[in-house]
Structure formats: structure tokens, C-alpha cells
Deep mutational scan, measured.
Amino acid sequence: MAAGGDHGSPDSYRSPLASRYASPEMCFVFSDRYKFRTWRQLWLWLAEAEQTLGLPITDEQIQEMKSNLENIDFKMAAEEEKRLRHDVMAHVHTFGHCCPKAAGIIHLGATSCYVGDNTDLIILRNALDLLLPKLARVISRLADFAKERASLPTLGFTHFQPAQLTTVGKRCCLWIQDLCMDLQNLKRVRDDLRFRGVKGTTGTQASFLQLFEGDDHKVEQLDKMVTEKAGFKRAFIITGQTYTRKVDIEVLSVLASLGASVHKICTDIRLLANLKEMEEPFEKQQIGSSAMPYKRNPMRSERCCSLARHLMTLVMDPLQTASVQWFERTLDDSANRRICLAEAFLTADTILNTLQNISEGLVVYPKVIERRIRQELPFMATENIIMAMVKAGGSRQDCHEKIRVLSQQAASVVKQEGGDNDLIERIQVDAYFSPIHSQLDHLLDPSSFTGRASQQVQRFLEEEVYPLLKPYESVMKVKAELCL
């Protein structure tokens, strides 16, 4: 049975990233139509530049190519590739079939990587351009969430054990800070992308030097003109047959890092959902379990974690691919890159769409948070109580021993009897502590235990987050809708 299948058929496997999760716009960027249309555009740009620099290419040939950029006979191309065992030459023939007058000058002087690699770089750039505003929107939604809850005390956790208090907004800023680093890295790697350009079979530009009869300047002009037509500021000066596969490492490393950030955020949300302090959106008709109707599973956060793990592992592909590119190139890269580049971007696209949807509907339960604080705060307040007693004339050592005994009794009630923490009640009825009984409410005010959390939130948002989001103001209103 021949390899390949009808990918629109229910009898043929289709990647869930495309069929179930990723956005239509990201799927289109990695589609065959987008790819092969870009090949034709690159052939047109090459012909236009070659004509401008004096090669015998007519206006009629150029116009014929322009008129057929979208006229792609995919069936013919597939048949040609089956016959020739070469995808680029299959599309040269297919393009030439609908451009008979231009057929002889299509791909003039070029090698397969002229269309293959340059198209990949265009796709990487455009895919990054799709991700950047999506990530900015996630940051914006979380920034709104953090600002609104900047002063809401909550129990902090280290080692997932109760620690000092923080605020809900401050905790959210930990998430935002990681995503801001990801946004900066995505922008950097996007701006650092260079075009492969017009380089020939081993990167020496020998074929173009021959076409222009040894004119170095025209060869350099050709490279520059096509690079500018493709919208790049610069091209690699040095290439082998391909652009260095280190570029793929750079791009997928940034995406993998984004995956790590999203995994951490969504894990926190899942843990908070278990504590009943916070939940992701839950639709009115949504079913959490087929057997347990009360369940409210954090399905979206779980999906993000599941896909983020996949995204983090994909960076190993370009690392290994770059390491086995012998001399000017081997074909070890080809099949692998067809999979890992598309999957990385479709996965990143999915987790950003999902995280935006989550961040637009996060639900906080202040009463649950308050109750958990009441359970733990008495123990945390013991040092403040000791200091207040010393100020009232008591002995630190005597007070410490009193607190120690009462704390152990209260802990026994919590752990052995399943009761509430009654340390404060014990202190309130103990005559030894009568000098500070009137101060206990103040000493137990949760806001006095959150330090500068709310001020940190305000400063972080104003100095770091809002300036970073400013270039994306025009796209901030787009909502994230999930079908599944």
C-alpha cells in the first residue's frame, strides 16, 4: 500500500493539533497551500530580480507567473513527485505547466533550498508574528487579574506546605514575570531571523556568478533584492546548502521555554482548584465526569500541561538535527523538520489560546482563602504575639514557653481530632496574655502579614508589564474561544 493518505478522510490519521486544537490561522501558515504558494512567490521574486539585473526574462513571463501564483494543481504535483521522487522539481514542473512561456526560467540558477529553506524562514517569521500578540493578550488578562487582587491576602506555599502570606495578585505576578520573559525572547528570536537568500547549491553562489558572467556586484544585488522582497532586513552571508540548523534550535528553545512557563502556571491553577481557592472557567453544560456528576475538573489547565510537556520535548529534535548536518548538509534534517517545526508552533498556539481562555474567566473564592488563612495564621502570628507581650512588660522566655504549650495543644486538636485551630481562643482565655487581649485582632490582621506584596504588584505592572504590552494595544480586544 502506498504511503500517505487522504487526510480529510475519517479513515486516515490526522494530527489532533490540526484537527482538534490549533487555530485556523496557525494551521494555514503550515498548510501545503501556504507552503507551495510561497515557493511560487519566491520563484517570481527571483525572476523579477534577475530581470532587473539584466537576464533575458520578459515582462510577459513575469506576468504569467504572477497570474498563476494561486493556480496550484495539487493532484498534478503529487503525481509528479511520485514520478520524480523530488518535491521541488515536482512543483517546478507543475508551475511550468500553467506558465508555459515562463517554464524555462522558473528556478533559474537556484537549488531546492532556495524555495525550501527560504519558505521555512518566512513561515517561522509569520508563525512567530501570530504567537506574539496571543502571548501579549494572556499577559494582559493576567495583569488585569493581578491588579484587581493585588491586596487580597492568601496563604503562600513553599514545598506545598503553608508559608508566609502573600497576595493573590502577587502570586499571579510570578506567572506574568515568566511570560514577559517569554514574550521578550519570542520577539528577540523573531527579529534575529535572517533570510537564507540566493546562495546556490553549497552556499557559494557559483551558479549565479556564472549567470551574471562573473559580476560579483550583481550577485550581491540579486541576494539583497530577493531578501528585501521577502520582507527581511538581512540575509546570511555564510550558508551551506541550507541555512544553519542552529536557527531551528533557537526558535524551538524559546517555544519550549514558553511551554515550561505555561505548565507551571496551569499546575498552580490545578492545585488551587483542589484547594477550592480558584477555578478555571466551567461552562453551564460542561460535564466533569461521566460517573461523578459533582466533579469540576480543571480540564483546560490539564490540557495545557499535557501539550506543554510535548512542546518542551520537541527542542531535542533540532538539537540532534543540527549535530548531524555533515559538511554542507545531509538530508537527516528533512523529514524531522517537516514534523517538529509545525508541531512546535501548533502546540504553542494551542496552549496560548487555551491559557487566554482560562485567564479571561478565572474565578476566585475569597471566603475559602480566608478560612485557610484562619487555619494557619495563628501559628504564624506567634512571633508577633511574643513581641507584643514583651512590649507590655512580659518575659520573652516565659511567653515563648506559654505559646509553645498552647500551640501544641491547638495542633493536637487540628491533627488528632480534625478540629479547627483554636490557638487564639486559648490565648484569649489565658490570664497571662490579658495585657494584649485587646491587640489580638490587630495582630491577626492578614494584611499585616503580606509585606509589600501589593506595592510590588503595582510597581511591576507599571514599570515592566504595561510598557512591554504597549506595541500590542491594537490587538488586545480579541477574545479566545474554545470549541473543545
Rank of each mutant, 00 (worst) to 15 (best):
A3W: 09
H7V: 11
H7I: 11
S9A: 11
D11L: 09
S12F: 12
Y13Q: 14
R14C: 15
S15H: 12
P16H: 15
L17Q: 14
R20I: 03
P24C: 15
D32Q: 12
D32W: 06
R33H: 06
T38I: 13
R40Q: 05
L42T: 09
W43E: 07
W43V: 00
L44H: 09
A47S: 09
A49V: 07
A49G: 08
A49C: 09
T52G: 12
T52N: 11
G54D: 10
G54T: 04
L55D: 04
L55F: 03
D59N: 10
Q61A: 10
I62N: 07
Q63C: 11
E64A: 13
K66R: 08
L69F: 06
N71D: 13
I72Q: 13
D73A: 09
D73R: 07
D73Q: 07
A77E: 07
A77G: 12
A78K: 08
A78W: 08
K82T: 12
K82Y: 08
L84V: 05
R85F: 08
H86Y: 00
V88A: 08
V92R: 01
V92F: 02
F95I: 06
F95Y: 11
G96P: 03
C98V: 11
C99T: 12
P100Y: 09
P100H: 15
K101W: 09
A103W: 08
I105S: 15
T111C: 01
S112T: 01
V115C: 10
V115L: 13
G116V: 14
L121E: 08
L121M: 09
L121I: 11
I122G: 02
N126S: 14
P133I: 15
P133N: 14
K134T: 14
L135P: 07
R137W: 06
R137L: 14
V138C: 08
S140L: 14
R141M: 13
A143G: 12
D144C: 14
D144Y: 13
A146L: 01
A146S: 10
A146Q: 01
K147G: 09
E148S: 13
L152K: 05
P153F: 05
G156A: 10
H159E: 03
Q161H: 04
P162Q: 12
Q164M: 13
Q164Y: 04
L165D: 01
T166N: 05
K170S: 02
C172N: 06
C172R: 02
C173M: 02
L174S: 14
Q177T: 13
C180S: 10
Q184M: 11
K187I: 15
V189R: 11
D192N: 08
L193M: 14
L193Q: 13
T202N: 13
G203L: 02
G203H: 01
Q205K: 02
Q205W: 00
A206F: 03
S207F: 05
L209S: 11
L211H: 06
F212M: 12
F212N: 05
G214C: 11
G214F: 12
V219R: 04
E220C: 12
E220W: 10
Q221R: 12
Q221D: 13
D223S: 06
K229A: 07
G231T: 08
G231Y: 08
R234E: 15
F236P: 00
F236G: 02
I238L: 06
T239Y: 01
Y243P: 09
T244I: 04
T244A: 11
R245G: 00
V247E: 08
D248L: 04
D248F: 00
I249L: 10
E250V: 08
V251C: 09
V251W: 07
V254A: 09
S257I: 07
S261D: 05
V262A: 15
K264A: 09
I269K: 00
A273Y: 00
N274Q: 12
E277M: 07
M278P: 01
E279M: 06
E280Y: 03
F282A: 09
E283Q: 15
Q285W: 12
Q285K: 13
S289A: 02
S290D: 01
A291T: 02
Y294R: 01
N297M: 04
E302N: 00
C305Y: 00
S306I: 00
S306H: 00
L307A: 13
H310N: 07
H310P: 03
L311T: 01
T313M: 11
V315A: 06
P318H: 00
L319C: 00
V324N: 10
W326M: 14
F327W: 03
F327D: 02
E328F: 00
D333G: 01
C340Q: 01
L346R: 05
L346I: 15
L346Y: 10
T350A: 14
I351D: 03
L352Y: 07
L355V: 11
I358E: 05
S359V: 11
V364Q: 03
V364E: 02
Y365A: 11
V368W: 02
R371M: 03
R372A: 05
P378D: 02
P378V: 09
P378R: 01
F379N: 03
N384Q: 10
I386V: 13
M387L: 10
M389G: 10
V390D: 03
V390N: 06
A392T: 10
A392L: 07
G394A: 09
C399V: 11
R404P: 03
Q409Y: 08
A410Q: 01
A410E: 03
S412R: 12
K415V: 09
G419R: 13
G419N: 13
D420A: 03
N421D: 05
E425K: 10
Q428V: 08
V429N: 13
V429I: 11
V429G: 15
F433P: 03
P435S: 10
H437E: 07
S438V: 09
D441T: 09
L443N: 04
L444A: 02
S447P: 14
S448G: 14
S448P: 11
A453R: 03
S454K: 15
Q455D: 06
Q458R: 13
R459N: 15
F460P: 00
E462F: 13
E463T: 08
Y466E: 12
P467G: 08
L468E: 12
K470Q: 14
E473A: 13
V475M: 14
M476D: 15
A480F: 15
E481V: 11
L482R: 07
L484W: 14
